[in-house]
């Protein structure tokens, strides 16, 4: 029980750190720690497949993408505009949390009311049979993403003509 509360606290602190750090590399690291903590929470809530994906893709791949982008983009302070509002994040979170504790409890408990037994299928069955259309849509998004990146960085015909 105490471990779970520590996990949840670290999740919130690392999420806040990711937003508050001025150095973008540290912010990316904060995001990675946030993903790792969320993966542990997933393991605790009997969701190992989601935890593995979160750990490998979000904590691994996305952090690498962020770190490589930060290294490509100049880290001069002039180019990294940071609003003063970021400093007040903890205060804003505390105020929002208190409001949520005071007025939001009926909304937070609404899903608990429908607690009922359900014969569950395996994750594979759900992805391949029940959510197959989502899988097709995801594939379409993947192809669109690849085409977009190719369009951004590929050589255009006018550039090739200029070189000639």
């Amino acid at each position: 029980m105490i471990e779970y509360i520590i996990l949840i606290t670290l999740l919130l602190v690392s999420g806040a750190a990711a937003i508050m750090f001025k150095n973008m590399l540290y912010a990316a690291m904060g995001l990675a720690v946030c993903s790792i903590m969320l993966a542990f929470v997933m393991f605790k809530l009997n969701a190992p497949w989601a935890g593995v994906f979160e750990l490998s893709v979000c904590a691994g791949l996305i952090t690498v993408l962020f770190a490589s982008t930060v290294s490509m983009v100049k880290t001069d302070k002039k180019y990294f505009v940071q609003s003063k509002m970021s400093k007040y994040l903890p205060l804003a979170v505390i105020i929002f949390g208190l409001i949520l504790l005071s007025f939001g409890k009926p909304f937070l408990t609404v899903l608990m009311a429908e607690h009922k037994a359900h014969v569950s299928q395996s994750v594979g069955d759900i992805i391949w049979n029940v959510r197959f259309k989502d899988l097709i849509a995801q594939l379409a998004i993947l192809v669109a993403g690849v085409v977009a990146i190719k369009a951004f960085f590929g050589k255009h015909s006018d550039e090739v003509e200029e070189k000639k």
């Binding site: 497949w49 989601a50 607690h115 569950s120 992805i127």
Partner: peptide, 13 residues
């Protein structure tokens, strides 16, 4: 709701 596998599938997507 005891549909953790469904939630896992949604999270993976």
């Amino acid at each position: 709701l005891q549909k953790i596998n469904y939630a896992q599938a949604l999270i993976i997507l």
